[in-house]
Amino acid sequence: MSYFSEIYDGIKTLLTGMSVTGKYFLNSRKGAITQQYPDNRDTLQMFDRFRGEVVMPHDENNEHSCTGCQKCELACPNGSIEIIWDRVVDEETGKKKKIIDQHIYHLGMCTQCGLCVDACPSDAIKWAQNFENSVYDRTQLTRVLNKPGSKVRAGVEE
């Protein structure tokens, strides 16, 4: 008799499985989970903590808050950040002060670990939510984060 009960059970479990997929088939219109990516660019909103690439925000006076302390450069595990800096004499106080010449960021080497942003004491760099990073040439992935002619915001100290 177990022969027949096996057949019965077998068919029953198969039909149970078919009912699951069948249910999704009937609800396929509203159930589809596909994101039609390039089409939904306008509505696609990344989460605000999403790590796309490192950027350096500048305000309207073309000022950033990077003091050139190099903590991000030290924190980076892959050497994705290079800071070219210089010391200039502050005219008001007469002290020597460190300023950045170029804050170079190699996106091609970056693993998006977030240690640099975490290490930054003056919140000079932050994550942008841009994820469309493809370029035609690898060299374009190396970016200078501070805009030309920008300077450090007054009052931001190391």
């Binding site: 990344m46 989460f47 903590r49 999403f50 790590r51 693993t111 998006q112 670990c113 977030g114 994550w127």
Partner: peptide
């Protein structure tokens, strides 16, 4: 992604 900033790593 919302809390940690990444989906896998």
């Amino acid at each position: 992604e919302e809390t940690c900033g990444a989906r896998l790593t």
